[in-house]
Every structure is written in structure tokens, then in C-alpha cells.
Design a binder for these strands. Structure first.
Lengths: 195, 195, 195, 195
DNA sequence: GATGAATGAGTATTCATTCAT
DNA sequence: CATGAATGAATACTCATTCAT
């Protein structure tokens, strides 16, 4: 897994994103990814030791991007509730703009824990913690009820957005626009937890 | 080809539930399921035409049970908010009591849409609609704000519960007990949508 | 490596003997062996876990036969020198009659120690010991000089026969007949070690 | 394509000797040899057209050395029996001093005839003929029985030494020292063929 | 000449599915 | 109906060899 050439590594991940989204990890052939990337089958193995490693690297790369982007978005607001709204909007926007990536994270991330025993998805935990931190902040500022348990609330909020994403990813056509969905979901949540 | 009322059919599904939960659909071998069921490999093909069909039948059977059970629970309450609380509690209780089933629905249901192109998960839609119907009822009774879009709200609520389940399914130890989680999540939601 | 059906197991070994002799272990394809045996590729893996295991089983089977046969031959003589002569004759005869087997033992047995780290060729050691025991007996009867070290002598005698075999195996045409070669080699040896 | 006098060519052969001895020809990777030689993979192909050619060149170089050395040793004696004793001693000494080379010649030379259809090992034939010539000389001088067939005797003697070598090459610890083994084996042979 | 990234032909092994008993 | 031995299509991965730099 030499990484002399990062450009090719990214090309492979981009191709894999497309193929995994279309076929799913198990049905995707390494040779298809190679073809999509415009390289030879063997070249993939210069950059990734196993097929599994492509998926892991894909997650890490995508999650890093998502995480960085979301941190930036949140930092633009100071009010915890505004942060939550922004989180909802940009999360759903991201799904809309990156359907392939969303599908993989939706579908494959779920089974990942099964075939990647030792792979700890730290990036995902950090992403959830962005919400947890906002809630904590809200509690400290007296905006959010002291009864709220951040560990449950962050999952409830993420799950609400995530289920919406899944619906979109698996549907052919998009019912409800991003703005509406984001506004509704963040509104339920904010009203649900505010003091 | 399927003989739905057969006892052996259920034995196979029970075995498959265990094996799919442990290994995931793709890594589970038909021969393992046969062994777990105490029958010969070939016997499985008397009851199911393909490996995929076992998973589909498994979903249908489990979802039917879940659906029937949840309908019964909901009917015991007349107040929409009480129904929501009961839904949350019994959904999470179900996960706790049926870890194997939960894991399969969590993990494999996601990829199912990929390999089962033509499989329409009607039972799952009906399950979601249980929530949608409660919300509709709440709106009609003036308990829930008219702004709430049931198609979004039902997914937000289900997603919140589902993410909690996923956390439990993938964690070794169970943080937060069922009652607490159910109370918190239904409370956010009810407060979030009530008039 | 179930062995329900010994007949098929032997059929595979017979086919492997032919193919390994023709191509060598590394160049022999499992599919060729299957074809030669008149079975499907996958069937081989019902009887042998790996390609390596075919070679190991082949050795064990052939060496058992060779060993049993040679023990019988030796027991027909009571004089140690007559035993040595008989050993030489039947060893070379065996090579002549089983060219494929001889070639594999000649060629592949040598490299076997390399890829089969843990495979201890006990049968071969027992074969060598047949000679060692004769020498020991000869020493005890005062027919063979006390200076002779059986551990060296048995290898010298076997090596002499073996080199002759190798010459035959690798040559197109057979120079020197079995009787002549056996007589010459056992004669050098007997005269060389007798008291 | 080969540049025989090149220093790099020898460096590659030296590296190959080490790697082939450790892993065997088929399991040795060209890249490993390159690394051992401290050069790039592609450089090997400037000096050798195929992996096979490295083995052939290795044989030729080693056998030339061995042959030259043995010729020199033999020429130091005038008595045929003394020559035989010296041959035995220096053959076994060579094995002891060059374990890697010995292992390759022992193990890989055997299979070489298989993958190198057209490779005629003339050097090896010349080596055997050194013994054949001594026997011929002995017969002419009346020291060796006229019944002895040099073509068989030379192989018997070489085979005896060779089997001893093989035992040493494949054993972890060396039983019997070189002097003892050489004395024993040449003694059997000389006594066995003398007039 | 030297490099080493890229190539792609080659193959052992797996496992869902079949079917003769 | 039940069996389980047999099938053979399918595919991840390796590594000798090439060739642009």
C-alpha cells in the first residue's frame, strides 16, 4: 500500500465510489473498478492491499471531507439552534449532491462493521459528536433542557436525518425538497429539546 | 416452490436469522444455514428457490410479526401521544429482545434493495405508516401542528429510534436502558410536533 | 478432506500422478488434474483442501505401496547380501514400471521439503531404514565389516540406485537394462562393505 | 542480452543463489532477487531475458567453478583410487562450504529439466565424466575390474555422495563429518570395484 | 544503462445450485 | 420429500515482464 502517487489513489476511490454505489460492495468486481478508473486490475493492488481496503479508504476520505465541511458550516453560526438547523440543511444537501457517496455510506457503512472487525469508524463518531457538542453547549447556555441526554439526542437527530436520506437514496424520485425536510426535522428536534 | 405453512420452512428461517446476523448475508453459507437447521443443503432448495429468497422470506415473516404486534400495542391506547410513546418503547424493546433479527433488519435490509431489485418492502412501508397514521390522527384532533408533514415526520421518528437501535446492535454493551431511550426520544418528538 | 469415497480420492491421485509427472507440481493446473480424472474442478476440493495436499497424499500412497512391496521382497531372502541384490533389482524395476511415479518422487519429492515445511516424510525414512536394517543384520552376522556406518552406507546405496533412476527418468531412451544396473550397483556395494 | 563479464550479472546471480535456496525457484520473486542485489526489478531484465535464465546462468557459473576446482584437485593425485577419495572429499566439502548453492543444485536442478526443455546440462555431464574417466583409467591400469561399466559406476558413486549431500542439505544439524562420510563412501566404492 | 510504476494474463479456490438415489 | 456428492461459473489477487522516463 505504497502511496507514492496520491492522484491515482484518488482516481481508484472515485471509481470505486461509483461502482460500489451501483452494485454494492460484494457484487462490485475489482476489475470493474479498474476499468472505471482507466487502469489495469493489478494497478489497484499497488495502492490497496485488498478489496476491503478500498472501501475503508473510501470511508475515511469521504468522512474526512464531510466532517471538515460540516465543522466549517457550524462555526459560521453562534446560536446552538441555528447550528442545528445548519447541520440539518447541509447534511441533506450533501446527500443530494453526492448520491453515490451517500448510498455507500448508507448501505455499505452498515455492513462494514461485519467484515471489518477491527475497523473503528472514528470519523463517524466525530461526526455524531458535532451534534452532541452543540447540545451540550445549548444545555450550558440554558437553552436546552437539563433532562436531555446528549448521547441519545445526537443519535435521535442524526437518525432522523439519516432515515430521510435513506428514503431519498433508495427512491427514484425525490419527494420533499431539501429545505423543507431540513426545516421540518430541525424544527421537531429544536422544539423537542428546548427549555 | 415455497410452502409457507411448513414447519421446516420456519426452521430454515430461524437458522438463517442466526447465521445472517452472525456473518452477514454474503458471508453466510447456505450449508451453514442447513447445518444450523439440522437438515441437508439440498432440502433448503425445496423450500426456497434461491439464497436471496431466504432473506426475503425472513423479512416478510419478521416484519409481519413486528407489524401485528405493534398494531396491537397501539390499539391499546387512544391518545396519539400515548401511542407514540408506546411505539417507541415497544420498538426498542423488540430490538432488545431479538438481537439477531434486529441486526439483520438493521444491516441487511439496507443492502437488500441492491440485490433484490424487484423486492418492494411493503411491510416496512406499512410499519412506517403506523406512525404516519398516528400523526394524521393527531393533526385531525388538533393535537399536532398543521405544519407537520407526516411523510417527513414519520421518517424522522422512525429514524431516531432506528439509529438508537443501530448503536445498540453494533455495540458490545448496552448504554442507556430501553425505558430511558424510549421516553427521551418520544418526548423530543412529541414536544417537537405538538400544537 | 472428507474421505467418504476412497475410489474418487484414488482417481484424483492417479490423475495427479500423470499430470505432475508431465508438467511438474507448479506448472500442473488443478483443472488439468480434474479433467484427467474426469471430474469437475470443484470435486477435487471435496477430497483435498489444497493443491499441496494432493501431492502429499500422492507421496503417502505411493510410498506406502513401495514400502509394502519392498518389505515383502526382502522377506523372501534370508541372506543379507541377497536382500541387497533384491532391493536393487526391485527398486530399479519399480522405476521402470512406474515412470510417472518415479519422476514425481525424483523431482517433486526434492522440492517438497521447501513448500511443505511441516511435512515429515516418514515413509521415505522407513524405506531407507530397510537398507539400514539389512546392513545392521549383516554386521551382526559378521558378514559386513564393523567399520561400516549404517547411516552413511544406507544413503550411499540408495543414492547409487537413485542416481541411476534419475538418469533413466530424465533420458528419453533407456541405456543399460534393469538387471545389469541392479547387478552392478549391488555388486559394488556388497564388495565394498563385506568383511 | 546477457553480458557475461559484467559485475552486475554476478551480483544478480549471487542474490538469486540466496533467494532460490531459501524459497525455491517458483516461490522466489524476481523483485526479491532485485532487492537482495540492491538494484531495480527492471535492471534484472537487462542482464537476463527471463527468470528461468537466471537459474540457468546460476547453474552454469556454479558448475563451471565446481568443475574447474575438481579438475584441479584430481590432477594433484596420480593414483585413480586416490583421485576417487579426493573427489569424494572435495565434493562433500563443497556442499558444506556452499550450502545455498548445494541446496539449489540438489533441489532445483531436479526440476530444471522440466521447465527448461532445451537446456542441456553439459557441465553436469562433464562433472560425472570426471569420475567416469578415473574409472576408465583404473581399468586401463588393471586396478579396476573389467566388468565395471563406467556409465553405471560413475552414477553410483556420484549418487552415493549426492544422497549424503541431500541429507545434509535438508537436515538442520549435520550428523557425520565430511572426512568420515568421504572416507566411508569412497572406501565402499573403491573396494567394490577394485580388481 | 537504470528505474520502478504499470500491466494483464493466469489460477487456485469457493459455494450456490442441481439431481440421482 | 430428503439427501449430500458433484458441479462449474465466477473472481480476487499475484508477479513476470515491459517501457516511458
Amino acid at each position: 500500500m505504497r502511496h507514492k502517487n496520491n492522484e491515482k489513489s484518488r482516481k481508484i476511490i472515485a471509481a470505486a465510489t461509483k461502482i460500489f454505489a451501483k452494485k454494492g460492495f460484494y457484487k462490485a468486481k475489482v476489475s470493474e473498478i479498474a476499468q472505471e478508473a482507466g487502469i489495469a486490475d493489478g494497478t489497484i493492488y499497488i495502492y490497496f492491499k485488498h478489496k476491503d481496503d478500498i472501501l475503508i479508504a473510501l470511508f475515511e476520505e469521504k468522512m474526512r471531507e464531510v466532517l471538515d465541511n460540516m465543522k466549517k458550516q457550524i462555526s459560521l453560526e453562534s446560536d446552538p439552534f441555528a447550528k442545528i438547523e445548519r447541520f440539518a440543511y447541509f447534511h441533506l444537501k450533501l446527500i443530494e449532491d453526492n448520491k453515490d457517496m451517500a448510498e455507500i455510506i448508507q448501505v455499505e457503512l452498515r455492513q462494514s462493521s461485519k467484515f471489518m472487525k477491527n475497523y473503528q469508524n472514528k470519523k463517524f463518531a466525530q461526526y455524531l459528536d458535532l451534534i452532541g457538542d452543540i447540545i451540550q453547549e445549548g444545555k450550558e447556555k440554558g437553552l436546552i433542557s437539563q433532562d436531555i441526554i446528549p448521547g441519545i439526542a445526537k443519535r435521535a437527530f442524526f437518525g432522523a436525518l439519516d432515515e430521510m436520506s435513506r428514503f431519498w437514496v433508495l427512491s427514484k424520485r425525490r419527494k420533499y425538497d431539501v429545505e423543507t425536510a431540513a426545516r421540518q426535522i430541525s424544527s421537531y428536534f429544536i422544539n423537542g429539546i428546548k427549555n
